[in-house]
Every structure is written in C-alpha cells, then in structure tokens.
Nucleic acid binder design. Structure first.
Lengths: 195, 195
DNA sequence: AAAATTATTCTGTCCGGTCAAAATATTTTT
DNA sequence: AAAAATATTTTGACCGGACAGAATAATTTT
C-alpha cells in the first residue's frame, strides 16, 4: 500500500523532473507532468496537494539524490586528494546529466531568490555539500596535504561556489566538449586554493 | 523625435527591470510593466514588438549597463592588483543592487538554458567580462605580479565563474551581512589562483 | 458493495496581443 | 500667428486561448 504510493510519487517526480528540464519551471503544466508520467491529470492531484507541492517535493528529491551520489563517491576514497577528485568526478558526472540537473536547478534558484520555501530546501542542499567540503579540507589538513592556514568553513563555501559557477558558465556556453575543460580547471583552481 | 522614443523605451525597460526583480520573469505581465512605468498597457506594445522583445531588450540593456560600470571602474586603475580590486568592488557593488541584478539575471539564465536568443545575449556579456579578466591577468603577468604559468584565457573564464558562483550562493543565503564575506573570499581565491 | 484510486469534464481566472477611438503633438496653410 | 490638417502617441475594452483546481464519473481493489 504505502510502497505503491511511494513509487507513484517517485514516478511523478521523475516525470516532473524531465518535464521541467525540457520545458522550464513556469511553462510546465500539471497536464504536462501527467503526460510525461503516462497517467491522467487526476493522479497528480491525488498524490500532491497542488502544483507548488509537486515542485517543492521535486526540488527536495532532486537535490537529495545529487547529494547522496556525491557523498557515496567521496566515502569510497581515503585520502583528501582522492576524495576531492571523487567529489568533482561525481559533480561533473557527464554533459547530459549536468545539463538536465542544472537547467532545473537554475529554474529553482530563480524561484528561490523570491520564495523562502525553495530557499530553505536549497539551503539544506548547500549544507550537505558544505559538509562534504569541510570533511575533505580538514582531512587534507590533518594529512598535511592542504595548507593549515585555510579556514575550513570558508573553504567549503568557496568549493561549492566555484563548482556552481563553473557548471553554470559551462551550461550557458552550450558546448558539450567544454565539459572536460571546466571540470579540470575547476579542480585546479580548488586545489591551488587549498594548497 | 527619436530621442523621445529612446527615452520611452528606457523608461519601460527600467520599469520591467524592477517588475521582474520583484515578481519574477514568468510572473510579470505586460500590465505589471505598464503599471511600474506609469503608462497604459498599450504603450509597451507600441514601443516593443511583443513581450519577448521587451525581455530580450531588457537582458541586453541590463547586462550592458553592468559591463560598462565594470569597465569604467577597471579603466581608472593602473596596476593589475588595483584593477582586480576595482573590478571586484564594481561587481560586489552593494547588497541591494546585487540582489536586484542577480534575481533578474538568474531568471534570464534559466530562460537562456533553453532559449538560444537569451543565451546569445548572455554570451556577449560573458565575452565582455572575459575581456576585462584577460586584460587584468596579462597586465599582471607583464608586471610580474601574477604567475607566468597561468593561461590567460582560462583564467578569465575562472574569474567570472568564481564571481558568479559566489554571488549566487550569497543571494541564496539571503543574509546581507555575508556580502562582505563573499566579496573578500572571492578576491582571495582569485588572487591565490593568479599568483 | 464499500473504499480507494484513476480518468474526465467543468469552471472561473488570467493574460497576451489587437484595435478603434481619443488625446496630443507637429506641420502646413491661410 | 491663428486655424486647419496631418501625424504620432496613448488608452483601455475586448477576444481567444490556456491553465489550475474542483467536481464528477468511472474503474479497480479490498
């Protein structure tokens, strides 16, 4: 029972994710989401309060998935450098997925700039990312790989700023082959900053 | 004749800028823009082809103004460090203006991720910004202030990525007092990267 | 058959773009 | 320089279309 309902919700969120990525946050209608999910309009209204509820759930779902991926990738490694590399490989996963996510993410940030509910969810995502950054930086300091002068909290914020800045610029330039370039230079900038 | 028309267009763009900043790209109606400009609805359609034409013009107008400011600030200085500082002071102008611009800019980037027309205008903005970055970096190398190993084109792209990444993160955190923090750390990261 | 779930239809609201008429400005004529 | 004629600008009512959410109907599950 509960299982079924949870699957249904996820099916709808997955569909909403694709729909928003294709058409944009404001353009997508409940009908679109239903169409993408291959269900009728009533279903969406049954599993979610209203349109906003779908979108809030979507942002939470999608940022959480990204964070889980990043966390998993970093956990597998042992040294700070390995972890940092794994983090970046997980973030810069590939052009298709990055495009899909950042299109939607930009939409949501635009919303978040005016709507505290979205901002709240994004802040949770930030805090998760910062945590990953902090762990890497403080491990690196313990190892002696990174400079002890770096302020751990500050660095974790900068790491995420650089990542997002690079991926947004990459997305705006709309050339898949530049993905490698931004991944590598992003890594270099961060590394140089931490050393 | 022409003068009057140009003024009218700017009046409408200025109003549209404020309206979009307040309400968001998709929410703003032609009526809103007219209201903000203190004119009737028909006027907007008289001076612009349609709604999209207003928005395309707005993005071009607003990014151009920003670039002009940055360029002017940098031009006044002579050494690479001074220019870099001036650039960052011009970018991180103050919380109010940054908020107003980045709210609108995020909206447009979300659009640009799916619409090549917006992307084109943004690319022009990027190229202007990169040019500023390149000039600063190559001057710094000539002076011996910055490392000669840095690739100038690459650096100019990174500078803008870091700036946008920082300001977006700052906007999402919605705490004016963090503006100083992001300005300073943004500067430090860039400087450490260039040295 | 009662309850839960899914499909379809309806309704009120809102918006972009049009347009004819009014208002205003400019030019020409007397 | 006043009046008339013409051009430009402004206004807001209106239309067609789209959509969210509600209501209702149909179907499936228990």
């Amino acid at each position: 029972m509960k299982k079924k309902a949870e699957e249904r919700r996820e099916q709808i969120l997955r569909a909403a994710f694709q729909a928003v990525s294709d058409k944009g946050y404001e353009t997508v209608t409940l009908q679109d989401i239903a169409d993408y999910a291959g269900v009728s309009k009533g279903v969406t209204n049954y599993y979610f309060e209203n349109k906003e509820d779908v979108f809030l759930s979507l942002l939470e779902w999608v940022t959480d998935r990204i964070y889980q991926q990043e966390y998993k990738a970093v956990s597998k490694q042992t040294t700070a450098i390995e972890k940092l590399e794994a983090y970046l490989y997980s973030v810069f996963i590939n052009p298709e997925k990055n495009k899909k996510f950042y299109k939607v993410y930009l939409d949501f940030m635009a919303q978040a700039s005016r709507n505290p509910q979205y901002r709240q969810i994004n802040l949770k995502f930030y805090e998760n990312c910062w945590k990953i950054g902090r762990d890497i930086v403080s491990l690196g300091q313990k190892e002696g790989t990174f400079s002890p002068d770096i302020h751990v909290d500050t660095a974790s914020k900068m790491i995420r700023s650089i990542i997002d800045g690079c991926l947004i610029q990459w997305l705006m330039r709309d050339e898949d082959h530049l993905h490698e370039f931004y991944k590598n230079t992003c890594y270099e900038v961060i590394l140089k900053y931490l050393k």
